[in-house]
Design a protein around this nucleic acid. Sequence first.
DNA 1: TTATAACCAAGTATTTTAGTCAAGAATAGA
DNA 2: TCTATTCTTGACTAAAATACTTGGTTATAA
Lengths: 162, 162
Amino acid sequence: MRLTTRGRYAVTAMLDLALNIEKSPVALSEIADRQGISQSYLEQLFSKLRKRGLVDGTRGPGGGYKLGRSAKLISVGDVISAVNEPVDATQCGGQKNCRGEHPCLTHDLWQELSLQIQTFLSSVTLQQLTDKESKNSGAKAPLTSLTPIHMQVNSAIKTSIF
Amino acid sequence: MRLTTRGRYAVTAMLDLALNIEKSPVALSEIADRQGISQSYLEQLFSKLRKRGLVDGTRGPGGGYKLGRSAKLISVGDVISAVNEPVDATQCGGQKNCRGEHPCLTHDLWQELSLQIQTFLSSVTLQQLTDKESKNSGAKAPLTSLTPIHMQVNSAIKTSIF
DNA sequence: TTATAACCAAGTATTTTAGTCAAGAATAGA
DNA sequence: TCTATTCTTGACTAAAATACTTGGTTATAA
């Protein structure tokens, strides 16, 4: 699981799509304009998103992109992993040249952590993010207002997993 | 919050340090050897880790690095953010050129998500990872055996936050 | 038929990553 | 004191990923 500005672009664009669901399909030029991302770069990202079935494109005038399935069923993890090449993680493939004591062990630990991050990102959907927005749009409360709850639950994870 | 192989190197090296706590300080050459990372590259990473107080270095023969504080008090988030440059995230700094409808909104949503990831990574300590190892070292159970529990808790987050 | 917009492929500039090289400073042990 | 060891620092380079450009082609609504 890699996490760079590339993934941010993809998630941002998908959120833009989810927020403009009523006027779908949405043209890439609009997204590029709104989010300040190069259109051709977006095209490349959307090519990968399309191959994963995360978006559907319709050509011609009035065409554009819409979500491939309900925002409820698209996770942030889906989007991020769609635009990133898979990474191999360990340099020793299986468990070949591990003569030392803790070499491959640390790799396993990293892999475990990586899996946890992946699981976490797969548990957050686009719908949840946009819902949170509409909840706060009336009130002036910051988006981060729910964070304390999150931290509570997170510490629950902490004690129950380890 | 960025997550690349650079962060993996740093976390891996810190785990190596935590696992070899009994023979500390540990020389960089050993870590480089065990983990298959260039020593000079590790030197650069450890320079940043040292500036954050995550490691202490002692020179001379028999010298090396040891954890700057208890493994209980060092989170994966600490390590990863130490070796990465902070990223600005939005292209419109404050909220200047946001004339469209949902432009900065998506940025806020991303920032919120980013915060959640950060919080998650800050809730996992080196100690927890190494503890998990020693628990499983006797039995042949894979490290991922606890994942289902994690997923359960994660879905608990899902329903309670959103 | 024409304008629109998805699709596609190749190439380029920039940035980041990963690594090398070379030197210096502290220190344990001979 | 001398020496080997190891951290510490800086500059420089190669490779990879990222972000973007250019120039097309296809499909389709009007």
